[in-house]
């Protein structure tokens, strides 16, 4: 596992993808490689792209990758799609829209399934970012799935959050009210040739103006043209790319990057604590069959969860 970390630091794709796989599968001992790379991370600009299904996120990501490659930046992409709650399987199809980068050594694209994690994004995303960062990717794009409150978790991982809206979906404004408004650093109105693009643009711009400014960063609302008009599309995405870089400079200049990093670090530490403290307890209870018994007790109303939890806490206090 230690060797794996070294290889990742050397930029080896096979090792990096294996490490991410180990993280997803929660293979014991994976933290050894993470320990190896953690201190070498923190150099990449992490961008979160979120929006409703069908908003055109993958196609936009594809073009952003292209823009950064034109600017000689290396790019990592983590594309997250949902796991089926019924079968545990997943159909990950974001790659289909990013095929042209498949052979570009400067691009590393990895699809992730949510695997039932609550936040709308895979638990492995945060760590996946570190892996790509450690590989030396300049820019890392995290494309997340779904719409609504859960996807705001992206804010814990990304420095710049892009919210993609598309006219004619009907529920954009609802989604904004549901929490997307607060997390966006940049809004994109995608497929700007569609009916309703102008009014959506106006509406979002108004909302942006009415909301509290983020310490001097004026949240831009950008129009992206239809991909069916390749030239216009490329130009408008290149403009998005400029804005993203502006935002990064702003974060650095205002010393705000550390604030975001702090949030991410705290969230990760939280998870690490969970893994280090709670997980072994749960494993132990499971293995001994005690968990089942406790649940039975609760079902029979012989005791309550609070008392039981307190007992467990006392019992394991000195063990972990």
């Amino acid at each position: 596992m230690k060797e794996l970390g070294q290889k990742v630091l050397a930029g080896d794709v096979r090792s990096a993808s294996r490490l991410i796989r180990n993280l997803e599968d929660q293979i014991p001992g994976t933290h050894v490689a993470m320990q190896e790379i953690f201190t070498k991370t923190g150099n990449a600009h992490v961008i979160g792209i979120t929006g409703a299904p069908g908003a055109g996120k993958s196609t936009l990501t594809d073009e952003l990758v292209f823009s950064w490659r034109q600017r000689n930046k290396t790019v990592g992409v983590l594309a997250v799609d949902p796991t089926s709650p019924f079968t545990g399987g997943a159909l990950l199809g974001d790659r289909i829209r990013m095929l042209r980068h498949a052979e570009d050594k400067g691009v590393f694209l990895r699809s992730l399934a949510t695997r039932g994690s609550m936040g709308g994004i895979s638990k492995a995303v945060g760590e996946g970012i570190h892996v790509m960062d450690a590989m030396g990717k300049d820019t890392i794009i995290v494309e997340t799935v779904g719409v609504g409150q859960q996807e705001v978790e992206i804010i814990n991982h990304a420095h710049t959050v892009i919210v993609v809206l598309v006219p004619g979906m009907g529920d954009e404004i609802q989604a904004l009210k549901a929490g997307l408004m607060e997390i966006a650093d940049i809004f994109i109105i995608n497929k700007a040739d569609r009916d309703g693009a102008a009014s959506l643009y106006k509406e979002v711009t108004n909302m942006v103006h009415m909301s509290v400014t983020k310490g001097g960063w004026e949240i831009p609302v950008l129009l992206v043209e239809s991909v069916q008009e390749p030239k216009k599309f490329a130009e408008s995405v290149s403009a998005v790319c400029d804005k993203i870089e502006d935002h990064y400079r702003y974060l650095v200049d205002k010393n705000l990057l550390s604030e975001r990093l702090r949030r991410k670090t705290a969230a990760e530490f939280n998870e690490a604590l969970w893994a280090a403290i709670l997980q072994p307890v749960l494993n132990d209870l499971d293995a001994g069959g005690e968990m089942e018994k406790m649940v039975d007790q609760l079902l029979k109303k012989e005791t309550d969860p609070y008392t039981l939890a307190a007992e467990v806490a006392v019992r394991y206090k000195n063990k972990v």
């Binding site: 196609t59 594809d62 829209r97 069916q228 008009e229 390749p230």
Partner: peptide, 10 residues
């Protein structure tokens, strides 16, 4: 005209 990209619907 540019090249068509499969929107990947399945």
């Amino acid at each position: 005209y540019g090249e068509y990209r499969d929107p990947g619907i399945y």
